[in-house]
Simulated scan of single mutants.
Amino acid sequence: MTQRGAGVDLDTSLGYLLKEASSALRAAMDEVLRPLGMSVTHYSCLELLAQRPGLSNSELARGAFVTRQTMNVLLQALEREGQVSRPAEASVGKVLPARLTPLGRRKLEKATAAVRAVEVRMLAGMSEAERADAFRILRSMIRSLHDD
């Protein structure tokens, strides 16, 4: 269905299609993470810490696209559950660098397998060349918007 007039044609709006793809991906990730007792933000936090141990609350919030307050609540819960550890006191300033615990790593392994299966499903209709093009194009769009 094409919208006419002063509005945007949603069928040809890149922003709308990206948002629709993002929403579909998030819903599929939520579906596979829920049985593991995780949200997408929970998974993102663990994945970020696995790749960059010692990130602060603010850095994790930026990486997971949530507020500092939301990330702080999540980190406190993950500490209580034994998935993440942070020092009791900051060595410099107010930063409490977070690290995954062995339990957090085990939980992340299961979640990563589930999320990768969603990504494989999302890319299933594409050839290897099309997948490479999609990644290149998306990175280029991101760079273009960050360069402003």
Rank of each mutant, 00 (worst) to 15 (best):
A27D: 13
L49I: 07
G5R: 03
V84T: 11
K110C: 04
V115H: 11
G104S: 11
P35I: 10
G93S: 08
E20I: 11
M122D: 13
L103D: 12
V95D: 00
D11V: 13
L36Q: 00
R116C: 07
C45H: 02
R86T: 04
L55Y: 05
R131W: 03
L36G: 08
G37Q: 08
L25E: 10
E47F: 13
H146N: 10
P97M: 04
F65A: 15
I137S: 05
D147V: 07
A117D: 14
S144R: 11
L60W: 01
S39D: 11
K94M: 08
D133I: 06
L74W: 00
Q3S: 09
L25H: 08
E119K: 07
S144N: 09
Y16V: 15
P35V: 13
L108K: 00
A88N: 10
G7I: 03
L49Y: 06
A27L: 12
A27H: 02
R34H: 15
A28K: 07
M122C: 09
S140F: 13
A132M: 13
L18Y: 12
F65T: 07
E31S: 14
A28W: 10
T41H: 05
F135L: 12
Y16L: 04
G37R: 10
P87A: 10
I142A: 10
R105T: 14
A28M: 09
L75K: 00
V8N: 02
L18Q: 09
S56E: 05
D30E: 15
A129F: 10
D11F: 13
E119V: 06
E119Q: 14
A117Q: 13
I142E: 08
G15Q: 06
S127T: 15
R52H: 13
V118Y: 05
R131C: 14
V118T: 03
Q51W: 04
A132P: 04
S144K: 06
D9H: 09
N72A: 15
S22F: 11
R80V: 14
S56L: 00
V84I: 08
L46S: 00
V8A: 09
F65N: 13
R86N: 03
P35A: 03
G63E: 11
T12R: 06
T101R: 04
E130F: 11
S22E: 14
V73F: 03
R62M: 04
V40T: 14
R143D: 03
A27G: 06
R139W: 11
R68Q: 08
